[in-house]
Amino acid sequence: MIFFGTGSANIDTKKTKNTVCQHCKTDNSLFINIYRRHAHVFWIPVFPLGKSGSSYCSHCKEVLSQKQMPEDLKMEYKNIKGNAKGPLWQFAGLAVLACLITFVIYSGGKDKENTQLYLNVPVIGDVYEYRANNGNYSTMKIRRVTEDSLFLSLNDYEINRISRLYKIEKNENYPEDTYGYSKSEVKLMKRQGIILNIERD
């Protein structure tokens, strides 16, 4: 379940100049509070949505929204709002997202590099994840390596999603029988998209 919503943070509070509270008529008692709303996912701020604010009288405690303010106060409010800068933490989610994207790109490149290395230099115990003719997925494990051939034990089970291969990747699921393939045949299966990934402990 994904939790998302909005929140707000006070980004500036300034005392107004040459203003009088319209309610209690006290001079220089008005403050402007500026807030910035932000969207969040799992309570992590992702990006700001906009700014709003209100005035506050320190003497009579009257609070006014922008629409309720007299014109002179409204002008000062707009200036303070325009100059108010929010905290960088309201962009924390974007920073996290950028890091995740960078990590995924790096990991994908590293996985591709490792797969090619494992394909060129196979060792006993390597597990080949492959797509079967019926569209399901399974694995086969290298039991013996010779100069030009690989001898693989085929997993007794298949599964309909590649992301669930871990459920059948168990030593007891591999029989003693092995099938021999030339190294060139295995590389061809990789190029054809039959072998999808190679895992090595």
Rank of each mutant, 00 (worst) to 15 (best):
G109H: 05
L88D: 08
L88I: 11
E113V: 08
N114H: 13
G109F: 05
I101L: 06
N114A: 13
F91E: 00
P87G: 10
V96H: 11
T102N: 11
L94K: 02
F103H: 13
F91M: 05
L119C: 11
N114S: 15
F103C: 15
L100R: 02
V96R: 11
G109Y: 11
Y106D: 08
K112S: 05
V104P: 09
Q90G: 01
G109C: 10
L97P: 06
L117V: 13
L94C: 06
Q116K: 15
S107E: 14
G109L: 10
C99Y: 00
D111G: 11
A95F: 00
G93D: 00
I101R: 05
G109D: 00
L100M: 09
V96F: 10
G109T: 06
F91N: 02
V104K: 15
G108T: 10
K112F: 00
C99F: 01
D111W: 12
K112L: 02
G93R: 03
I101Q: 09
K112Y: 04
G93N: 07
A92W: 03
G108V: 10
L119G: 09
K110S: 06
K110F: 02
Y106L: 07
C99R: 04
V96M: 15
C99E: 01
T102F: 06
V96Y: 07
Y106Q: 07
G93W: 01
L100D: 03
L97G: 03
V104R: 10
L119P: 02
L94E: 01
L100V: 00
A98I: 08
V104Q: 15
G109I: 12
T115G: 03
P87Y: 05
